[in-house]
C-alpha cells in the first residue's frame, strides 16, 4: 500500500524542480508516447488525420485537468480518490445554477461557473483539512469524500440528468481554434500554470519537500498543514473546472458522471513518472501520461481491438509504468 504523508527515507533529494534526471524521466515517457504514435500511424490510416487529432485532444481534456490537480496531491505523498465524485457534485451544482429561471445567459454562465468551481474547491479543501489536521491517511478521507460527494450530487439533482443550457455555453464545448479544441487549451493553460508553480516558486519547492521529507520541511519552519490543505484544494479546484468542461462538452450534467475518473487521473500521473510515495515527478510527465492513456484508448479502437482487449492493454501499461517507476526510484536513491 502507499504510505501516506509519512516520510520516505530513501529519497534524499527534496527541493528540486525540473532537474536533469527529471528531464530524462519525462523524455523516457515522451519516447514511449512517440513510439505509440508511430505504431498507430502505421496501423491505422485514420490515426494521424487532423480530425482524429482534434478528437484525441478533446478526449484527454477532462482526464488531464483532473490529473493536474492530482499531481499536487500525489507529490505531497497523498492520494485523492474523490475527484470523479467531486466533479459530478460540482457539475450538478453548476447545472442547477445554469438552469435557474429569470436570468440572462451571460449571468447564468458566470454564476454556474463560479458555483461549480467553488463546490469543487470546497470539497478539496475539506479533504485537505480533515486528512492534515488529524494526520489521517488521505486514502481513507477521500474514500469517504467519494461517497459524500456522490451522494450530495444525487441529492441535489434528485438523480435526474440536468439539461438545456444557454446556447453560448453549449457551443463553447465544441469550439475549435485552427483545429485545437478550446477546452483542451484550458487544460493546457492549467498544465503550464501548475508547471510554473511547481518549479519556479517557493510554494512548489515546499510541495516537493513535503513529499520527500516532511519532517525536514517542518523543521525548516514551514506550515506543513497549510501546504497540505492547499494541495488538496488545488485538486478539488481542478475537479470543479473539469465539471464545467464536462458540461460544455456534453451539454448535460449528470449526477452519475465521472465514476472511476479518479483512477484514470491517478494512472496519468503515475504513468507520467510521478512517484506514488511523493516528492518526485512533474506535471509535464502528467501531460504525457494523459496523452498516453488517450492515444491508447483512441488508437486501440481505430485498429479494431475489442473492448475487453483494450481494457487489458490499458491495465498492462499502468503496471509497466509502476515497475519502471520502481527502477527510477532506485536510480534516484543511488544517484
Amino acid at each position: 500500500m502507499m504510505s501516506d504523508t509519512q516520510t520516505v527515507g530513501s529519497i534524499p533529494t527534496p527541493q528540486r524542480g525540473l532537474s536533469v534526471r527529471g528531464i530524462i524521466n519525462s523524455a523516457g515517457i515522451g519516447l514511449a508516447l512517440l513510439l505509440l504514435i508511430v505504431f498507430f500511424s502505421f496501423a491505422s490510416e485514420h490515426f494521424l488525420t487532423p480530425n482524429n487529432i482534434t478528437n484525441i485532444l478533446t478526449q484527454i481534456t477532462i482526464n488531464l485537468i483532473l490529473a493536474v490537480g492530482m499531481t499536487f496531491v500525489i507529490l505531497i505523498g497523498g492520494i485523492d480518490l474523490s475527484v470523479g465524485s467531486v466533479m459530478a457534485f460540482a457539475a450538478v451544482v453548476a447545472g442547477k445554477a445554469i438552469t435557474l429561471p429569470g436570468l440572462g445567459p451571460a449571468e447564468l454562465i458566470l454564476l454556474a461557473t463560479t458555483a461549480g468551481v467553488l463546490a469543487g474547491l470546497a470539497c478539496g479543501m475539506l479533504n485537505g483539512f480533515l486528512s492534515a489536521y488529524w494526520s489521517l491517511p488521505s486514502f481513507i478521507i477521500t474514500l469517504g469524500m467519494l461517497n459524500i460527494a456522490r451522494g450530495a450530487a444525487l441529492q441535489v439533482s434528485d438523480a435526474q440528468t440536468i439539461y438545456s443550457f444557454p446556447r453560448a455555453f453549449e457551443n463553447f464545448g465544441s469550439l475549435l481554434i485552427s483545429g485545437v479544441p478550446v477546452v483542451f487549451l484550458v487544460a493546457l493553460v492549467l498544465v503550464l500554470l501548475a508547471w510554473f508553480v511547481l518549479t519556479r516558486t517557493v510554494f512548489g519547492r515546499i510541495i516537493y519537500g513535503i513529499g520527500s521529507n516532511e519532517e525536514a520541511v517542518r523543521l525548516a519552519g514551514h506550515n506543513v498543514f497549510a501546504y497540505k490543505v492547499a494541495a488538496f484544494s488545488i485538486c478539488g479546484l481542478t475537479a470543479g473546472i473539469a465539471a464545467i468542461i464536462y458540461m460544455a462538452r456534453l451539454n448535460i450534467s449528470s449526477p452519475i458522471a465521472g465514476i472511476g475518473f479518479e483512477l484514470n487521473a491517478i494512472a496519468a500521473v503515475i504513468i507520467g513518472g510521478t512517484s506514488l510515495s511523493g516528492g518526485r515527478g512533474s506535471v509535464i510527465g502528467t501531460l504525457l501520461g494523459a496523452f498516453i492513456i488517450g492515444v491508447l484508448a483512441n488508437g486501440l479502437i481505430l485498429i479494431g481491438l475489442s473492448d475487453f482487449m483494450r481494457q487489458m492493454i490499458t491495465g498492462v501499461v499502468i503496471v509497466v509504468a509502476v515497475i519502471l517507476d520502481h527502477y527510477r526510484a532506485k536510480l534516484a536513491g543511488n544517484g
Binding site: N52, N55, Q59, Y246, L250, I256, A257, I259, I301
Partner: peptide, 12 residues
C-alpha cells in the same frame, strides 16, 4: 455513460 459514449463513438 454519456462521456464514455462520446469518446468511444467519436473514435468509431
Amino acid at each position: 455513460e454519456t462521456e464514455e459514449a462520446n469518446q468511444v463513438f467519436s473514435t468509431m
